[in-house]
Design a protein around this nucleic acid. Structure first.
Lengths: 335, 335
DNA sequence: CTGTTAGCGCTTTCAT
DNA sequence: ATGAAAGCGCTAACAG
């Protein structure tokens, strides 16, 4: 590639100043029709594209948002990204995805990008802030799906505890009394919230919460499998299981079926998230649906508002998360 | 946020020039130990981070690579991203993911980012160049997984035709003679290559290629389901099916099982790609494995080499793609 | 080893 | 409506 055309080249060719070129492109109204035309023609002729680095440096903003996730493979994300990209585009922003892959080094690298002004704000899926951050000096941030304990930052999410309670109550209503929970990693707030919801619903239903009903599932398919095998080996087997996410629920489903059990006849199963995978198996999973497009849209609006100084840093945005009834749950003792 | 510290603030505080600050940070060796220490101390004190926009503008490079995909949800990507991020980080580059979501507008937006110097190069998964591009003025680009008809750009991929032929031959070797193909979207080069491989293997085995053996599957689960139902409704049913990707193979598997057929006893099934999903079902899919980490690593090295002017724009990098035998294939007429 | 200086390409006062 | 000029924050010659 030869050196690309600059604003000066266009100015020279059109016989105007660089200021005029800038205006003709960014604020056409400020320039006479003739001039505008001449400038645009010249620009097209030499294939001019404004250098965004220069523009951004001058304007002290980039009109781009960094979306930081821990693991891009998470099936929970795509619909959220899609909605975020739509919302961003509407307001003239670009979305950049940063994948930390559980590497602190990479996470730090992306934060530096923002601190170094290469993005105007961050939507944070990772559930954690960079270490040793002075909350005063944080760039504009919006938390997505998972709050951060102790931090008071704008958040867009569902009420995980309430949704988990609802999932559990659904099983209670179906007549189940021994309802187990396959939990997520306990260092994550989201797992603790869902666990708390299960606990609360069990309490409220007056059902005993014995230790054997709670097993860790790690939010993964293998984790769910192991958890389910453990549960099904219990002398007094639960007749229903609430898994903290769909992946562990799918694992649980596979495990049950391999043990020759029928879901939902022998054991009912509820997941959480409503990822695409949830509907793929037989039976399809009853689960809590996170309203992903709405979450993405709300988060993007919120971060842009904050960047542009609009709106107020209000209470968390909490979106409804309905229970989706499918084939994996049934009345206790029936098909 | 108050205005962040600049290099001048650090210089003043440390009692040196800005040039010295710059050196102390970027090229510590060029500065005396005392100075370096003083500078770093001052920088830490006021929480200084270099403004990358300014640095990049000055240096005319960003040390970041844009990875452009059509649909981030594709389960084929994550392992590739992971490898790319590793390779990039090793050489001091950052990976930015751009998701076009099938929107031409957004695709154009990302290309502009590169043309406008916000990224040094592009790894292209989308199988298409921006419209009306003068190939001479293209930024550094590496094509991933799918070549672009007519374009002669550096490519990192497998030999799709050969791999498809190998998958088909595997079925031939198991004694199958009526081997159907569920193809991908025919506007994609990759689908046409895999179709060609199936054709070639059938020809070479002297097997008749009747029209009814070829059905479109769109690379999706529903597409694969529909295709399989169509195949199984044939008067002279194929005893084996080669699907152009794993998703359509999974669809085919589900359809077969819903029709009460046993895979592989009644019909053998081969997929392509070896995505995680492939191993999740019962039976697990026999499939062609794309060496994703290696693809990602090779592509990132290649693009960085090109950006830095190292290496030569050589022949395509073609990586081996082994057949992974699992439970979905068996000898014709046996279990 | 360090400072001075120029300038990356753009936008935005301030004049006219 | 347009131009001149300053400057965003940094790095790279060049000089010493």
């Amino acid at each position: 590639m030869t050196r690309s055309a600059t604003i000066r080249d266009v100015a020279k060719l059109a016989g105007v100043s660089t200021a005029t070129v800038s205006r003709a492109i960014a604020e056409p109204a400020l320039v006479s029709a003739d001039t505008r035309e001449a400038v645009l023609k010249a620009a097209a002729e030499i294939n001019y594209t404004p250098n965004l680095l220069a523009r951004n440096l001058r304007q002290q903003r980039t009109k781009s948002i960094l979306v930081l996730v821990e693991d891009i493979a998470n099936p929970f994300y795509p619909e959220i990204f899609h909605a975020m990209e739509e919302a961003a585009q509407q307001r003239g922003y670009t979305v950049l995805l940063g994948n930390t892959g559980h590497s602190n080094e990479r996470e730090q690298g992306y934060w530096d990008l923002v601190r170094a002004k290469r993005a105007d704000g961050v939507v944070l899926f990772t559930g954690q802030l960079p270490e040793g951050t002075d909350p005063k000096r944080l760039p504009p941030v919006v938390l997505m799906a998972e709050r951060i304990a102790g931090a008071t930052l704008p958040l867009v999410a569902i009420d995980n505890e309430e949704a988990a309670a609802r999932a559990t109550r659904h099983l209670v209503d179906l007549g189940h009394r021994r309802i187990a929970h396959i939990s997520g990693p306990q260092h994550r707030v989201i797992s603790r919230d869902r666990l708390a919801g299960w606990r609360r619903a069990m309490d409220e239903a007056g059902l005993p919460l014995t230790d054997d009903l709670l097993v860790p599932g790690e939010f993964t398919i293998p984790g769910g499998e192991a958890a389910m095998r453990q549960l099904m080996a219990l002398p007094d087997r639960p007749t229903a299981v609430f898994a903290a996410n769909d992946e562990s629920a799918v694992g649980a489903l596979r495990a049950a079926q391999r043990l020759g059990l029928d879901v939902p006849r022998d054991v009912s199963l509820v997941g959480f998230d409503d990822i695409a995978l949830a509907a793929l198996f037989d039976p399809a999973l009853t689960t809590i649906r996170q309203p992903r497009p709405e979450l993405g849209d709300a988060a993007m609006r919120l971060i842009i508002d904050r960047i542009e100084g609009k709106g107020t840093p209000t209470a968390p945005t909490i979106l409804p998360a309905p229970l989706i009834e499918r084939g994996s749950t049934a009345k206790r003792g029936t098909k």
